[in-house]
């Protein structure tokens, strides 16, 4: 177990190097430095000499290899300096924005997973019935609608016309909930279709297996087969699917964050891309990568814990 963990943590190193390389290719080789420098200079001093001066100051005139190694060093030590636009240390900025994103996405994700799990098991239990067909049709329709449309409609009709929710805004602390309800609802609406379908398929695939037939032959009721046998076994693919989505949650809410002016990490990232705020971008990418690799590791370990047939080797 510990050997496995150590080996997996060592796998992190080449992945971080690769991520740094992709980032380096996009922002240092393809372009962006000039725009980046141009952006941080005040309007009056945007001259070639100034840009060259700053290029030297930020080390952008050094050889590519040195620049790359520097990037790697920054990523490993997690020291990205200050945001060029906001003039705040990147670490503080991240610490401030990540909890807000978490507040938006984790409850929404939790609601959505529970709702879709309930719907999916009902669908699988009453498969072929009108209810099943209705949910299947609705989930295809839900998959086909764009999030932006839903956000616009929700904000326009529910918040603006009917006044059920505040249109947008943010406060610190617990009072933020009233600004979060509408985004939560929209999040659930957008993603519930995909999940219901996935869970339903996972449950139905499980229900064709031999042990289900054995249970039926033993004389167990459909209900106890469904909820005691099938649901438990189907939890393995469902668990993987759920855990693997968690890292994407922090980034998946960019639209919601921008529309409802929630100061989260997606918002931070989009602004950083537009302002060529490279330190912030580096930090967000690094943060995401660590989060992602960490959660894939957790998935693998969980997988082995849930399913004894899988060995960690």
């Amino acid at each position: 177990m510990i050997n496995y963990l150590i080996r997996r943590l060592l796998h992190l190193v080449p992945i971080i190097l690769g991520v740094a390389l992709v980032f380096f290719l996009i922002f240092n080789v393809i372009g962006g430095q000039e725009k980046f420098l141009y952006n941080i200079l005040p309007k009056k001093s945007r001259t070639v000499e100034q840009i060259d001066f700053y290029k030297h100051k930020y080390g952008l005139d050094r050889p590519m290899v040195v620049q790359y190694l520097d990037l790697v060093k920054q990523m490993v030590t997690f020291d990205f300096g200050r945001s060029e636009v906001r003039k705040i240390p990147v670490k503080t900025l991240l610490m401030r924005h990540v909890p807000n994103s978490a507040k938006l996405t984790f409850p929404a994700f939790f609601f959505e997973i529970s709702i879709s799990l309930i719907l999916a098991s009902l669908c699988a239990f009453y498969r072929g019935s009108k209810f099943d067909r209705l949910i299947t049709v609705l989930s295809v329709l839900g998959m086909s609608i764009s999030m932006l449309v839903l956000i616009l409609l929700g904000q326009q009709i529910l918040a603006y016309k009917w006044g059920l929710f505040p249109i947008s805004g943010w406060v610190k602390g617990i009072g933020a909930i009233k600004y979060l309800i509408l985004p939560w609802i929209l999040w659930v609406l957008v993603s519930v279709g995909y999940d219901v379908r996935f869970f339903r398929t996972a449950l139905l695939e499980e229900s064709h297996k031999d042990y289900v037939r054995t249970a039926k032959a033993k004389g167990l009721s459909d209900k106890s087969i469904m909820f005691k046998h099938i649901l438990r076994n189907a939890l393995i693919p469902i668990l993987t699917y759920v855990v693997i989505q968690i890292p994407f949650l922090l980034m998946g809410s960019i639209l919601l964050e921008r529309f409802f002016s929630i100061p989260g990490i997606g918002d931070l990232m989009v602004n950083a891309i537009f302002n060529y705020d490279l330190p912030v971008l580096k930090a967000t990418i690094m943060f995401f990568t660590l989060f992602f690799v960490g959660f894939t590791l957790i998935t693998d370990v969980l997988y082995a814990l849930v399913d004894p047939r899988i060995r960690l080797s």
């Binding site: 992945i15 690769g18 992709v22 393809i30 962006g32 960019i254 537009f274 990418i285």
Partner: peptide, 23 residues
């Protein structure tokens, strides 16, 4: 597999936005 895991580890949206913005 290494190349794939590197690309998966960066959010796709971010790659798309950065590429479109720089190019």
């Amino acid at each position: 597999v290494y190349i794939m895991s590197v690309i998966v580890a960066i959010p796709g949206m971010l790659i798309i936005m950065s590429l479109v913005q720089t190019l």
